[in-house]
Amino acid sequence: MKKAVTGGCKCGAARYRGEISNVSMFRCYCRDCQQLTGAGHSEMFPLVSETFKLSGPSTEYQMTGGSGRSTWSRFCPTCGSPLTRRSERMGQCVYVHASSLDEPEIYMPRRTLYDEAAQPWDKPDKVR
């Protein structure tokens, strides 16, 4: 049995639950993640799509990712907290932002993506 995790937005209006995927947790420096988070990178925690449940209000934004395929970002419409990312390319997972986890200390990134897009003020560290 896989471990279930919970999380949600800052104001508490949107909540989620899902099982941890065996896909690596990662830190992403792509320009999309920079713009969507308002920071130099995002910290992404994969959950199994078929177990993922979101309750409460949310707004989804569709865009074309670096792969040329569709990606979707979900936010709380009340407080603006970023909640999830998902993509056509990795449809078996829903990626939640590690800061939205109820227990963010369980996040342990195993790799970085798009290091070459990192801003000079947010250079990638070595991940564990």
Rank of each mutant, 00 (worst) to 15 (best):
L54G: 05
L54R: 12
L54M: 15
S55P: 05
S55C: 09
S55E: 15
G56L: 11
P57Y: 08
S58N: 12
T59A: 07
T59Q: 13
T59R: 14
E60S: 15
Y61N: 02
Q62M: 05
Q62C: 03
Q62K: 13
M63D: 13
M63I: 11
T64E: 13
T64P: 03
G65A: 14
G65E: 10
G65Q: 11
G65P: 09
G66A: 09
G66H: 10
S67K: 02
S67I: 01
S67G: 05
S67R: 01
G68P: 12
R69F: 01
R69S: 02
S70N: 08
S70T: 09
T71D: 03
T71W: 05
T71Q: 14
W72F: 09
W72A: 05
W72D: 00
W72I: 05
W72V: 11
W72H: 07
S73D: 07
S73G: 10
S73T: 13
S73N: 14
R74P: 00
R74Y: 01
R74G: 08
R74S: 15
F75H: 10
F75G: 01
F75R: 04
C76I: 04
C76E: 10
C76P: 12
P77Q: 09
P77M: 06
P77R: 06
P77S: 09
P77W: 13
T78L: 13
T78D: 14
T78H: 14
T78C: 02
C79G: 10
G80K: 08
G80S: 12
G80V: 09
S81I: 06
S81L: 08
P82V: 03
P82H: 06
L83V: 06
L83D: 03
L83R: 02
L83C: 05
T84R: 00
T84N: 02
R85L: 14
R86E: 14
R86D: 12
R86M: 13
